[in-house]
Design a protein around this nucleic acid. Structure first.
Length: 482
DNA sequence: GAGCAATTCGA
DNA sequence: CGAATTGCT
């Protein structure tokens, strides 16, 4: 009797360091059926957004090509997942299903149900850790509770040993030709109008693209990480987030390769830069930890007092924010970068989130949703943590009064206005000293730069100082009403 | 460089 | 008890 196993791919679209795949290859099976099941309905409100879908399309295309080159084949199906797995089991005669674990609430619930169903019908099932360095349930405070503050979380886990990543297979068993697959195109992941051009040009989804990015980061950017990662005009960050989201590379591989690289490049300064980068990977772990233990946080503030926060309900403000027409250069630059490319530099993510929630006092869930639909790296854990952090209703005791001033942010991190000029070209001719606050520029300076405020570029839709004060007052009220 | 405004977390 | 991502006026 032939033994066959289904490897159920999800957001682990890689061959190297893929424990489910490795277990299947080492499990004495005669055949392996690699399958991806597209079932966005099962993710409720958090089905992949527009930009994510584009990424997923190309990532699946890359995985399919890799499997082809090893003599295997990616089977693509659509949900419902449980029924689809049942059909595949029937068609292939598989006796086992293996997969790698994910941690968002709806996926956990679905996977549990499917595991029980498969177990009950006599299948062998196994799930594996590959998406995170530290399983959320293995990390707790001395009181046995989940962590709510990053630093103690990170201190408690960062010295744990990380096992070596698994090698990619050199060859794989053929997939029975009778097992049919849908075409990728039929999943309808790509947009009808080609707004995704910039995404295609700027990125290479897939496992090879992910590793190239990591190498590029090590070669070019890590030596200045602490200084350059906050400067949006530079390429100072790793750009690994969308690759990590789809699991084209895993955190274990990143950490391992980093150590290997550091062994070849010594220096105290480099160690510091590497520590900062590691802690960013740590933030991703922390975000998953918090989402796992507080599964309501995509919708609800962790700090319950914020349920009563007097949001403005400013629809017009939200629209202008989305379109990059707020009249605040840094905010508009960030929002336009997002709209044009599906990506936004992290420094700007904090700045625009602070502006939306504090200065416009629009509920953070609206911004979270917009990011979800537009970001190519939209990730439920990271997006949720980021928005709650920026709002001040999240995991740490950060004071609400820590409100970003977009003009100060511009002066500090985009001093020469390069980033603003790139994304808000109508301000291109304005001198550096006015570029982050055009409303304060003298008439002469505006004229010299051919800018008519309110015509060529909007007047600020809100007064930064007054709106900051009002936000603080609103926070005072919910604090006292507790 | 202090004050924001005292709070919550976590050892 | 000390500490708390990345701030602003």
């Amino acid at each position: 009797m032939k033994k066959r196993v289904i490897v159920w791919f999800r957001r682990d679209l890689r061959l190297a360091d893929n424990p489910a795949l490795t277990a299947a290859l080492g499990g004495g099976f005669d055949s392996i059926v690699p399958v991806f099941i597209h079932a966005p309905d099962e993710l409720g409100d958090w089905a992949p957004g527009g930009a994510q879908r584009v990424w997923l399309h190309f990532s699946l295309e890359a995985l399919a090509a890799q499997l082809d080159s090893l003599g295997s084949r990616l089977i693509v199906r659509t949900g419902p997942t449980q029924e689809t797995l049942d059909e595949l089991i029937e068609e292939s005669g598989a006796s086992a299903v293996y997969w790698n674990r994910l941690y968002d609430p709806l996926t956990i619930a679905r996977d549990k149900k499917i595991k029980k169903h498969l177990d009950d019908s006599g299948m062998e099932t196994a799930s594996f850790q590959s998406h995170l360095l530290y399983e959320p349930w293995t990390v707790e405070t001395k009181q046995g509770k989940p962590y709510k503050v990053f630093t103690p979380f990170w201190k408690s886990v960062r010295d744990r040993t990380i096992s070596a990543p698994l090698a990619a297979p050199n060859t794989m068993p053929q997939v029975w030709s009778r097992i049919g697959s849908r075409s990728l195109a039929s999943l309808d992941l790509l947009p009808r109008i080609d707004w995704d051009k910039e995404i295609r040009e700027a990125w290479t989804p897939g496992e090879d693209g992910a590793h190239d990015r990591l190498e590029q980061f090590l070669d070019d950017a890590i030596e200045n990480y602490d200084n350059d990662r906050d400067r949006p005009a530079r390429h100072g960050t790793s750009y690994l987030s969308p690759h990590l989201h789809c699991g084209e590379i895993g955190p274990r591989q990143i950490m391992h390769r980093l150590e290997e690289w550091l062994d070849e490049h010594s220096g105290k300064a480099l160690q510091d830069h590497a520590a900062s980068f590691r802690s960013e990977i740590g933030w991703r772990e922390f975000a998953h930890h918090v989402l796992y233990h507080f599964p309501d946080t995509p919708e609800k503030p962790l700090d319950e007092r914020f349920e009563a926060f007097p949001w403005s309900g400013d629809d017009e403000g939200l629209k202008r924010w989305q379109r990059g027409q707020t009249g605040i250069p840094m905010v508009d630059a960030g929002m336009r970068e997002l709209w044009a490319t599906g990506y936004m530099h992290n420094r700007l993510r904090m700045t625009v989130a602070s502006f939306l929630t504090k200065n416009l006092r629009v509920a953070w869930q609206h911004g979270e949703r917009w990011f979800w639909d537009t970001l190519v790296d939209a990730d439920l854990a990271n997006n949720t943590l980021g928005w709650q952090w920026a709002t001040g209703c999240g995991a740490d005791a950060a004071p609400f009064f820590r409100i970003f001033n977009p003009a100060r942010q511009g002066e500090r991190f985009d001093a020469d206005g390069e980033y603003v000029r790139r994304w808000v070209p109508e301000l291109a001719k304005l001198e550096n000293r006015h570029i982050h606050e055009p409303w304060k520029a003298p008439a002469k300076a505006l004229k010299a730069a051919s800018i008519r405020l309110g015509t060529d570029y909007p007047e600020p839709i809100v007064d930064l100082k007054a709106s900051r004060r009002e936000a603080l007052e609103a926070f005072d009220r919910i604090k006292k009403s507790d």
